[in-house]
Write a protein that binds this DNA or RNA. Structure first.
Length: 191
DNA sequence: AATCAATTCAACCGCCTCGTG
DNA sequence: ACACGAGGCGGTTGAATTGAT
C-alpha cells in the first residue's frame, strides 16, 4: 500500500471537465441498480472521481432516459417565453412545465436564442429605452413585453431564433453520444 | 484551404435552502 | 436553537463547432 499525503486527497482525485463515455456508463449502471439521490455517496460508491454535484448535473441534464434534446418546438418556445414573462429566470420552475427539457437547456436556449432576439428588437424599437446592466437582470414585466412582441412578429422561415442547429447528433464531439448508443450498453451490462 | 469571429452548450462555481442530528 | 452537510438553483465560463471572409 502506497502512502499518499493526507493533504487534500479528495481534491487531488476529483475529476473535472467533460465526461467520458465510460464515466457515463458507470453512472447509468449505478443508478439503474441503486436509484438516484445522495449524490456524494453515490459518486464514491460508484467509483467515480467526480463530485456529487457533477454526477447529479450529468444525470439530470444528459443521461436521464427521459431527457429530450434539440429541436425546441415553436410551441415550447412560446411556452418558455410565456413562463419566463410570468416567473423570470426561474429556470427549474419553467422546466417543470416542459417535459423532458432541463433547466440548463432552457436557460441556454433563452440566453443564446431568445435574448439575442430581444436585444435586436430593443435596438430597433427602443433605442432610447432604459439601459440594462447585464444580460440577466431583465425583470418579468420587461420580458412580458418582449414576449408579446415576439409572438406577433413571429415568422419562422427568416427568423434567426428559429434556426435550430439540428438534431442532437453531433458525432464529432467526443463526449457527446446519443442515448441510443449508451442505453443498450447499460442494458447489456446489467444482464 | 486557412483564418478569424460568432455561436452554442456542457459543465463548473458560488450562493441559498432544507433536512437532520 | 444551532451547526453542518447535501441538494438545488441561477449565473458564468470556456471548449468545440459553425459560418463568414
Amino acid at each position: 500500500m502506497e502512502k499518499k499525503p493526507n493533504v487534500c486527497m479528495q481534491d487531488v482525485q476529483v475529476r473535472k471537465g467533460p465526461w467520458t463515455m465510460e464515466e457515463d456508463l458507470i453512472l447509468i449502471n449505478y443508478i439503474a441498480d441503486h436509484g438516484e439521490g445522495v449524490w456524494n455517496s453515490l459518486a464514491r460508491s460508484a467509483g467515480l472521481k467526480r463530485t456529487g454535484k457533477s454526477c447529479r448535473l450529468r444525470w439530470l441534464n444528459y443521461l436521464r432516459p427521459d431527457v429530450r434534446r434539440g429541436n425546441i418546438t415553436p410551441e415550447e418556445q412560446l411556452l418558455i417565453i410565456e413562463l419566463h414573462a410570468k416567473w423570470g429566470n426561474r429556470w427549474s420552475k419553467i422546466a417543470k412545465h416542459l417535459p423532458g427539457r432541463t433547466d440548463n437547456e432552457i436557460k441556454n436556449y433563452w440566453r443564446t436564442r431568445i435574448q439575442k432576439h430581444v436585444k435586436q428588437t430593443d435596438n430597433v424599437s427602443g433605442q432610447t429605452s432604459s439601459r440594462r446592466n447585464s444580460q440577466t437582470d431583465m425583470i418579468p414585466s420587461q420580458t412580458c413585453n418582449v414576449a408579446s412582441q415576439m409572438e406577433f412578429s413571429y415568422h419562422p422561415p427568416c427568423d434567426n431564433i428559429m434556426n435550430f442547429p439540428g438534431p442532437f447528433a453531433t458525432e464529432t464531439n467526443e463526449n457527446v453520444w446519443s442515448m441510443d448508443e449508451l442505453w443498450p450498453l447499460q442494458l447489456l451490462h446489467n444482464v
